[in-house]
Amino acid sequence: MNDLLFSQLSTLVAASVLLFGILLVWRRSLLAYIKVFQWQSTMLTILFAIVAYFGNDPKLYWIGVLLFFLKVIFIPRLLQRFLVQIDVEREVAPYINTATSLVLTGVMVLLAQAMTNPLIRLITLPTRNGLPFAVALIFIGLFVIITRKKAFTQVLGFLVMENGIAMLAVLGTFGIPLIVELGVFLDLLMGFLVMQVFVYQIQGTFESIDVSKLNQLRY
């Protein structure tokens, strides 16, 4: 009974995390992206709490709290300030338009399902049904990075991909050791800051954060 509840709850929350990922593909406003990321991270925190509660693993609470502060409060705030500085509001003309993107996203979710299917049949974890969502989220993050032109959107794509990885970790293994998790957080933060600096540099050089213009650097 308890396991069934655990399974259903975790699958539900994992699905909502994925849903916010798909929202990222749909929306165009950069401000909305930040909101989407914030909500996605919130749902991820809840997922951590669920796994911690049902899986009897108190240290996951701590990771959840850290995650909340980092991804729901700190990084979105940085992103907002970032947005003000680069003074761009919308993602215009991506390589693939919204409708096609959404169809492709659907394909990727199916693909993730197909990919994880053998694994799901093999393991007995109550959380196993959420695994395809995590993999799909990773694909979607990568997809956003590939098809969107603004460097800002790509940073968000990276963050979403990272969320997917974190979700895969918590669903697949009930969280990795705290020290590793801390390392991942630090990595994420550093990566984010470095990317921020890069975006400023790109903007300073090209007076735009349109990454597709980078091929002007080609010899």
Binding site: L142, I146, S212, N215, L217
Partner: peptide
């Protein structure tokens, strides 16, 4: 090509 997207 020099396009980041293509590399990705």
């Amino acid at each position: 090509s020099g396009l980041v997207h293509l590399y990705l």
